[in-house]
Amino acid sequence: MKTRATPINPKNRFQSIVTDRECDDGWYQDPADEACPDSLATEVTEEQARSIISRNRSPDIPFDQSINPYRGCEHACIYCFARPTHAYWDMSPGLDFETRLIAKPNAADQLRRELDKPGYRVSPIALGINTDAYQPIEKQREITRDILKVLVEYRHPVSIITKGALILRDLDLLSELAGQGLCTASVSLTTLDNSLKRQMEPRTAAPATRLKIIRELAAAGVPTGIIIGPVIPFINDHEIEAILEAGAGAGAERASWIMLRLPLELDELFQDWLQRHFPQRAEHVMSRIRDLRGGKSYQSRWGERMTGKGPYADLVRQRFNRKARSLGLGGHEAEPMRRDLFRRPGGEQMQLI
């Protein structure tokens, strides 16, 4: 599938009956047959969200509130830990996750309602964590921009992680928030190799463009960091030092890393991708991943799921820390964002009206 990370749609874990269509039986396939396209257009349906702020209590995640304007992600990163969530909507974590998206057009209005509740307690909102808030359909939908407008209005702190150049469209809002100590951004920088980028995360911004994003965010006064996420053994792990150097040179202030995670259906999808693109080293990659996860493809234990454990995990940590220190890059979190500026534009008594 051109510009898609995977051509397969494995069943999700809730399906009891599975139907597959085989385009090519090995004998003949008409290249003009539209039943077997070489790519698929993105389909978007709409959902009227009943709530928009998600909350978590995971001790190894540095935020407790997040907003996801979309379900599914057109960026199509093969390693995305969020792919299995598409099963909750009776869709496959495979090609469906990349091509059948759900937008939340009432997100900004719902956010206002939740921020206006008398019992709301201010805590930084992480924007676009499960799926990228700046994926391509945001250009037309502008749901993320509408959310940012609300956060500016309420003077609410927000952090953003993205691979999308569209974030630069919103520099006016982000710089306004950052000027009040209310915004940070992180750019996911997984490789400097354009060929690997196209295979691994086909619809994301190119490596050079992501460095441009860092430069322009930093120039606008937005505290910006990089995330090497994920580190994939024998695929991009050799780039750790080069990525840190490039990020620091572009103006990043901090850096962090995450080891590849393969929960649920993602295990099958990633292994299929390995066999398609790196068949000679596929078993070597998976062997190292299992070493990191106690003999399994994935281990969900808090404190270990983001890094794995064992000699290889220790080596990655040491390499990363040594290089980051030499470049003056801080840890994962930026300076704490302000919470004392929060206001309700309608006034604190508006709920009584």
Rank of each mutant, 00 (worst) to 15 (best):
S58D: 08
P59D: 11
Q349F: 15
S175M: 03
A255G: 12
Q135S: 03
R121I: 07
D146P: 02
I102T: 14
R301I: 13
L196T: 03
L151F: 05
M1W: 12
T307E: 00
E34A: 14
N321V: 08
H156D: 05
L244T: 00
F63G: 01
P202Y: 06
R319H: 12
K149Y: 13
P233E: 03
A255I: 07
I137Q: 13
R215S: 15
N68F: 00
I226C: 01
Q275T: 14
E46W: 13
R112V: 13
I258L: 10
A185K: 01
K197Q: 12
Q15I: 02
P84L: 00
A133K: 02
V222K: 05
D60Q: 09
L40R: 15
Q271P: 00
E239P: 11
H284P: 04
R71K: 12
K139Q: 13
R141G: 05
K139A: 13
R325C: 10
L182E: 05
E34P: 00
K104L: 07
S297F: 11
L174G: 05
Y312L: 13
S123H: 14
A255S: 12
R261F: 02
P202V: 09
L115R: 06
L173Y: 08
Y120Q: 09
S54A: 10
L292E: 07
Q280A: 15
D291E: 15
R325G: 01
P279D: 12
P230M: 06
S188L: 02
Y79T: 03
S300C: 05
R112D: 06
G295S: 11
D146H: 10
P136T: 10
P124Q: 07
E283W: 08
K117T: 15
T42E: 09
L173V: 07
D24I: 11
I213D: 04
N56D: 14
N236D: 00
Q271N: 11
G221D: 08
D38G: 14
I102F: 09
T184K: 03
